[in-house]
Simulated scan of single mutants.
Amino acid sequence: MDDFYAAVDSIVGLPIDELQSIIRDIPKPVIARINGFAIGGGNVFATLCDLSIMSDTAKLGQVGPKVGSVDAGWGTAFLARHVGDKKAREIWYLNLQYTAQEALEMGLVNKVVPHDELDAAVDEWTQIIGERSPTALALAKRSFNADSDNIRGISMLALNSVKLYYDTDESKEGMKAFNERRTPDFHAYVK
């Protein structure tokens, strides 16, 4: 996962926690345009966005425990607010991939469109939002966020803990197995 965080840093020039804060704090609604695989960190970013439009060919899911990682905070607690506690646990514990229709049914995305209509659907929503009162939108977003802002502290604590965890042999086994395209052997780490 260090590679994921390094990739985010190099692409957007920001640490992952700052990018997550920008998505939450920018006064305008942020729309996730989901095309392809939003697995792991991509799924967390989609969860953080205010609205999500997904191509009918895309997939969402988590891989954390499968590769020796976790996003404890936004990726877990906030996900549970979207899909419910039991479903969030399923997503994190089983590491399955979900189709666009499944994501819509569980409340993880707002809308699913045919793949070739994705850009038009996102453009339509951005046009509609662009015609709305920016102050009213900002106030609405802050109001929505106020109910879940305690997760920010959990996320920061968890992010720092996970960074320490990545230095352990257990986490390294997960990433090594992923890179070698094999099932990790976590038996030595059972508590």
Rank of each mutant, 00 (worst) to 15 (best):
5 Y>S: 12
8 V>D: 12
9 D>A: 14
9 D>S: 14
9 D>C: 10
13 G>N: 05
14 L>C: 04
15 P>A: 07
17 D>V: 11
18 E>D: 11
20 Q>H: 07
22 I>K: 11
23 I>H: 06
23 I>Y: 04
24 R>W: 08
32 A>C: 02
33 R>V: 01
34 I>M: 00
35 N>E: 07
35 N>V: 01
36 G>I: 03
37 F>K: 15
37 F>W: 09
37 F>N: 07
42 G>N: 01
42 G>C: 02
43 N>Q: 12
45 F>I: 00
49 C>N: 00
50 D>S: 04
52 S>P: 04
53 I>R: 01
57 T>H: 02
65 P>M: 04
66 K>M: 03
67 V>S: 04
68 G>P: 03
69 S>Q: 08
69 S>F: 06
72 A>V: 11
73 G>W: 02
73 G>C: 04
73 G>D: 00
74 W>T: 08
80 A>W: 11
82 H>N: 10
83 V>F: 08
86 K>R: 12
88 A>E: 15
89 R>P: 15
94 L>T: 13
94 L>C: 14
96 L>G: 15
100 A>Y: 07
101 Q>L: 09
101 Q>M: 11
105 E>Y: 12
106 M>A: 10
106 M>Q: 07
106 M>G: 03
107 G>E: 08
109 V>Y: 03
110 N>D: 12
111 K>T: 14
111 K>H: 14
121 A>M: 06
124 E>I: 05
126 T>Q: 13
127 Q>G: 15
127 Q>P: 14
128 I>Y: 10
129 I>Q: 06
132 R>G: 10
132 R>K: 07
136 A>T: 15
137 L>S: 11
138 A>D: 03
143 S>K: 10
144 F>Q: 04
150 N>S: 14
152 R>W: 04
154 I>N: 15
154 I>W: 04
155 S>P: 06
156 M>S: 09
168 T>R: 01
170 E>P: 05
176 K>T: 08
177 A>C: 02
178 F>Y: 11
182 R>W: 02
182 R>L: 00
182 R>K: 10
185 D>G: 06
185 D>P: 02
186 F>A: 00
186 F>K: 00
188 A>W: 08
190 V>L: 09
